[in-house]
Design a protein around this nucleic acid. Structure first.
Lengths: 122, 122
DNA sequence: ATTACATATGAATGATTGTTCATATGTTTA
DNA sequence: TAAACATATGAACAATCATTCATATGTAAT
């Protein structure tokens, strides 16, 4: 129906449904928003970070606690905590030598839960 | 208070709060669950895939439509659609030469929304 | 049958990234 | 002040991954 051949800019094929494409394009969010969204999910896309977040959802912990819990080196944990902090997913407070980390966003659990809904679906 | 020195398995530090760690450990989900969760979010962690999913949430589209919309090659889109299909996030139907893709999970939008809530938070 | 076209796919490549190792920083205690 | 320790960080390395390129597959039209 809506067939129409267009010199494709970059895609190496003809457009089939240009009306649909235009309608979708009009409704798409800003490029930047989608980029930020991908960046956020990228942070969730690592099992070490997921485990850290899940642990911190249970209790505030220091770096060493987390390393021990996950059986990983302090350095590896520290690097990942930095990523989580930059993403504003965790915060920390210092008490002497010890640095305690905790969740900085109560939505983390909700994002997890939505993910679990998908996983547990057949 | 709960200080206790333990020969750390793999972490190169002493455990500070073993009671907390044990309590958290008892509440952690299965390793596999968290791994699957990370795998799912990894799929969301790419702006091309995010854009495809967002577009498909608006309308069913064929591969060429999507390539044109996102100004990318048909091949790149096809590769990413395969990833999305494996993650059971999209499904497809064939009509002659043309393959139409659509969302396979109505929770995708909810996961997006949760992510956006975090992003739009200061 | 042959051509045209939509889509899929394997190999190659460049970029990104998680972990390790070595070491630096900062705080506490002796 | 010096030693001990928690944490942070930079460089290096291996692994993963998104895209490209070339080409294969399958369908429709001539």
């Amino acid at each position: 129906m809506s067939k129409r051949t267009v010199p494709a800019d970059r895609c190496d094929c003809e457009v089939i449904h240009e009306d649909v494409v235009n309608s979708v394009r009009a409704k798409m969010p800003k490029e930047e928003t989608l980029y930020d969204l991908a960046e956020l999910f990228k942070v969730f896309g690592d099992s070490t970070r997921i485990r850290i977040l899940w642990a911190l959802d249970e209790a505030e912990m220091c770096v060493c606690d987390i390393a021990y819990l996950l059986n990983m080196t302090q350095s590896a944990i520290s690097h990942q905590l930095r990523v989580l902090k930059q993403a504003k997913l965790v915060r920390n407070r210092k008490e002497g030598k010890v640095v305690y980390y905790s969740l900085d966003d109560e939505h983390v659990k909700m994002i997890f839960d939505q993910g679990l809904v998908h996983i547990n679906e057949e």
